[in-house]
Computed example of a mutant assay.
Amino acid sequence: MGFVRVRFNNFKNIEPREMRWFPGLNLLTGGNGAGKTNILEGISIISGWGTLGRGEKNSSIPTWESGSSEAQLTGEIDSEEIIKVKVAKRFFIKVDDKTVTASDLRWKIPLLSFLSDDMSIIEGSSASRRRLVDMLLALIVPSYAFRLSEYRRGVRQKALFLKKGLPSMVVDRALLPLAAWLWRMREEGVGLLSQELEKLSELTPARIELSLKRGGAGLCADCEEDYSRSLFCYREREAALKFPIVGPHRDDVAITADGRQASSALSRGLRRRTAIALMLAASDGVKRKTGKSPVLLLDEVTAELDGEGRKILFDSLLSRDSQLFAATAEPFRLEIPCVVHKVEGGRIVESRQNK
């Protein structure tokens, strides 16, 4: 499963043209501002995930010297289906000229993206760890992304009530089944990650264990009861803070190494290796549940890895039956089987077999 070609029209600083891709690793090299990350972002959009810039609005996407407020991406996947995405104030998506949703597209061409910040998943914010679990679940549970969106909308509504000093019981009742369902799904997702991580013990420096920490909760095992009891316990605090503090929007994934908190037990280099293992575990989990190897996007993930870490990363990636897109700054000297695409001024100026 992967892309054969993608055409960029009026998209950021990418020169309007068609780019052809190969099975296995496609390595994008070039200096800062060359367009590497924008190419990855285009592939993310045409896979149903939207922009890589989290929270970026479609209207903020500049276009290629055209004066147009719209961009279009056209891609062919190896099943010979043609995907077209028009980027305006919202996304308009068609597959073989039939309108589909972003969720439909993610199911057709599964993709996982990892930005340079994701290499700090061990010591970073809880949002990065939630994102990993959410990406995994969105690819294996068709209704997950929709229900998560509905829950987030409800949380925003509750926050508005709290800010105005209004009672939020009506919103809480509406959020209860969504929150409980999301907790159950995330616990299953963390369990799947844990199972796949055990198979990658050669990458991890210690026994890594994962567990879901329910946001503002954890008073009892049953999800519905836990949400209700936690709301009751923290109702006055929520009113004082004027913000919802109970629910999946505040979840975290606890990561331990040999029983100790991984962020303090592991060195920086070993945390990076563990992050790589988590990425690969997510990919393996998707393949296990769907039978499809997801396309992987990796943006500057080698930036803080030493020579050994880079070798471990690419050896692990190339051992999988996946199409890979990785962006890295020049020079790149590892002798690995891949196609190297040199990017300058928003276009690929050279493509060559590395080995």
Rank of each mutant, 00 (worst) to 15 (best):
Y144N: 09
Q157A: 14
E308L: 04
L27G: 09
I43H: 07
A159I: 01
N58K: 02
N354V: 02
C223N: 05
T328V: 15
R250G: 02
F161Q: 14
W49P: 02
N354K: 12
A102K: 05
N26M: 07
I208S: 03
I348Q: 02
P205F: 06
H341G: 06
F232Q: 05
D78T: 11
R271L: 08
M19D: 04
H341R: 12
W21Q: 01
G346I: 01
S194T: 14
D258F: 04
L162Q: 05
D226E: 04
I39N: 08
V349S: 04
R271N: 13
D172V: 05
P294A: 09
G291C: 01
W183G: 08
K89S: 15
G50Q: 12
K98S: 09
G269L: 12
V246L: 15
V301P: 14
R271H: 15
G55K: 04
E188Y: 08
E196P: 12
F243K: 06
R207D: 12
L52Y: 01
E209A: 07
R5P: 00
M185W: 03
E123R: 06
L296A: 11
E81R: 12
L212V: 08
W21P: 00
D97F: 13
S59N: 03
V339A: 06
G50T: 11
P16H: 09
G269E: 11
L280Y: 07
G269V: 08
I109A: 09
P177D: 09
M1Q: 10
T256W: 00
S267R: 05
G30Y: 08
S68P: 01
I255G: 07
R352C: 02
K12L: 00
S168Y: 15
T274R: 03
E308P: 00
S316H: 08
W64I: 00
R20T: 13
K94P: 00
G291Y: 12
W183T: 13
A159Y: 01
K86P: 00
Q353K: 04
A102W: 01
T99V: 11
